[in-house]
Design a protein around this nucleic acid. Structure first.
Length: 433
DNA sequence: TCTGGGGTCCTAGGACCC
DNA sequence: TCTGGGGTCCTAGGACCC
C-alpha cells in the first residue's frame, strides 16, 4: 500500500501559520517577481481565480479584496521539513516528492488500521505545525494520488484520509475522475485523449495498451497500468544528486545594459556552483540563456542560449562563472531589451568520480581549497558574505517583491533567514564585504 | 504598468560506425 | 544500371511534474 500526503494550499497555509488573520480570507501567494498566483486559499479558488493567474488580472475575477502575498520559499521549505519529519515517524520508505507532497508505504495490510494511523498523523501535523494535510492510500502511487484528491475535495470526509482499496469503489471513483485529474496526464495528452472521445479515467483504462502507447509513450502506458493496479511508476528520492541545476530569474523590469545582465548571469552561475558543491557534484557543461519580454509588442523580441563544455568536470565558482560569462558574450546582442536570464549546469557527476585533469591539476587543487574556505565562511556568517568581486554591482535586475505578510513578531522564530528572499539585496546592504 | 522557477524522462532523427 | 543491414550516440524538442 502506498500513501500520498499532500498539504492543502501549501504556501497559503504556511502564511496562515504566521498570520492567523488570513484564515477565512481569499489569499493568494504570488510567484517570484509578484508575477502570478502559485498558491490559492479555498476562498480564492471559490472566486474562480485560476492557478497561474497573472497578479494584475486577479481583480478582474472579483470585487472582493483578495490578499496577495510575495512568496517566501525559505520559510515554506522549513515548514515542509518539519512535516516530513513527522511523516517519517510512521512512514516506511518516505519519498519526498515535492515541497508539499510525499509518498510512503504503510505498515498494515488492514485498511482500517492504516486509516486510523493516517488519521492520527494528519491531526498531529495540524497540531504541531499548523498546516492541513490530506492523505490518500491505494495499491499504486497513481491511485493514491487520486485518493488524496478525493480526501481533499470531499467535505464529508472530516479526517482528510481516504483509502482506495475496494475494487468496486475504485471503479466508482475512476468513473468520476476526469482524465486531466490523473497524475501523468497534462494539457497536451488531455486534449489528445478528449479528441479520441476519452473523458474519464474509467474509459482510459479500457483502451488497448498498444493504442495508449500510440497516443502517448511508455509513460502513458505506465499511468494506465497504475490505474488498473499494477505498480510501475517510481519517484526519484529528493536527496539524490541532481542531473541538472538551474538558476534563473525574470528581472523586475526590462534591461538593455549589457553590464547589468552580465551581473545577473554572474550571480546565477555562482548559485549553481555553490549548489553543486553542496551536493558534492561537479558539472561539465554550462549553459546560459537570455530572453526578451514576450508580452511587449513594442519591443523586438530576441532570445538565445549557448552551452559551453568545460575542460573537465568542476564545481569551482571561478571556472563556472568564467565560462558562463564567455557564453553570455556569445549570445548577447546589442540593441535588444531583456527580461530574463539564467544559467544551467549539466553533465553532472559525483565529485569523487572525477578524474583530475593532468594539465590543470595544480589549478584544480587551488580552486578546491579556495572554494571550501568560501563555503565555510558563507555557511557560518550567511550566504553571499564572500562572492566574486565582479558581482559587486547594484543588482538592477532584482525581481520585485512588494507584497509582504507583515508579521514581524512571529518572524523572529526564523531569525537569520531572509524574509524577502532577494539574495542580491542581502549583499549590497553589507558594507563590510 | 503588471504574466515564475526548477526539475525529469522519452522519442525521433541525424551522424557516424562496421 | 545497380546502392544493405544493423548498431550506437547525441541532440533538440516535446511531454510531464510541482
Amino acid at each position: 500500500m502506498y500513501a500520498l500526503a499532500d498539504c492543502n494550499n501549501f504556501f497559503v497555509s504556511c502564511e496562515r501559520v504566521f498570520n492567523p488573520d488570513l484564515i477565512g480570507q481569499p489569499v493568494v501567494v504570488l510567484s517570484n517577481n509578484d508575477g502570478c498566483a502559485i498558491s490559492r486559499s479555498n476562498e480564492a479558488k471559490a472566486l474562480g481565480i485560476p492557478m497561474g493567474c497573472p497578479a494584475f488580472q486577479i481583480k478582474n475575477y472579483t470585487s472582493e479584496n483578495v490578499i496577495m502575498l510575495s512568496a517566501r520559499h525559505v520559510l515554506y521549505r522549513d515548514i515542509s521539513n518539519r512535516i516530513m519529519r513527522i511523516l517519517g515517524e510512521i512512514a516506511i520508505k518516505l519519498e519526498v516528492y515535492s515541497v508539499d507532497e510525499a509518498f510512503f508505504q504503510l505498515p498494515y495490510d488492514d485498511e482500517y488500521q492504516n486509516h486510523e494511523l493516517l488519521s492520527e498523523i494528519v491531526k498531529k501535523i495540524f497540531k504541531f505545525v499548523g498546516v492541513p494535510v490530506s492523505i490518500g492510500f491505494a495499491s499504486t502511487r497513481t491511485l493514491a494520488k487520486i485518493a488524496s484528491h478525493v480526501a481533499k475535495k470531499d467535505p464529508t470526509n472530516l479526517d482528510r484520509v481516504k483509502g482506495l482499496t475496494n475494487q468496486d469503489e475504485i471503479d466508482s471513483v475512476l468513473s468520476k475522475t476526469k482524465i486531466d485529474d490523473i497524475w501523468g496526464i497534462g494539457r497536451r495528452l488531455n486534449a489528445k485523449l478528449l479528441s479520441c472521445g476519452v473523458h474519464y479515467a474509467s474509459e482510459f483504462i479500457r483502451l488497448p495498451k498498444s493504442y495508449v502507447q500510440k497516443i502517448g509513450n511508455i509513460n502513458l502506458v505506465r499511468t494506465q497500468q497504475e490505474l488498473i493496479g499494477h505498480d510501475c511508476v517510481s519517484v526519484n528520492p529528493v536527496n539524490i544528486a541532481h542531473k541538472s541545476i538551474m538558476n534563473s530569474r525574470t528581472f523586475g523590469h526590462v534591461i538593455n545594459k549589457k553590464r547589468e545582465i552580465c551581473d545577473a548571469v554572474l550571480t546565477f552561475a555562482q548559485s549553481c556552483s555553490t549548489q553543486l558543491r553542496q551536493e558534492k557534484s561537479a558539472a561539465l557543461t554550462v549553459t546560459v540563456f537570455v530572453y526578451g519580454d514576450r508580452f511587449r509588442q513594442d519591443l523586438p523580441f530576441y532570445s538565445n542560449s549557448c552551452s559551453i563544455r568545460m575542460q573537465s568536470h568542476t564545481s569551482s565558482t571561478i571556472e563556472i562563472v568564467r565560462h558562463a560569462i564567455q557564453a553570455f558574450h556569445i549570445i548577447y546582442k546589442e540593441g535588444y531589451y531583456y527580461r530574463k536570464a539564467g544559467v544551467m549546469v549539466t553533465d553532472i557527476k559525483p565529485a569523487n568520480e572525477i578524474q583530475l585533469d593532468i594539465f590543470n591539476a595544480e589549478k584544480e587543487v587551488k580552486h578546491k581549497k579556495l572554494m571550501s574556505a568560501v563555503d565555510i565562511i558563507n555557511n557560518r556568517y550567511g550566504t553571499k558574505q564572500v562572492i566574486l568581486a565582479p558581482s559587486l554591482t547594484k543588482g538592477e535586475w532584482a525581481p520585485q517583491q512588494n507584497h509582504h505578510n507583515l508579521q514581524s513578531k512571529t518572524m523572529r522564530f526564523y531569525s537569520g533567514m531572509s524574509p524577502r528572499h532577494t539574495p542580491h539585496l542581502n549583499h549590497i546592504s553589507n558594507d563590510n564585504e
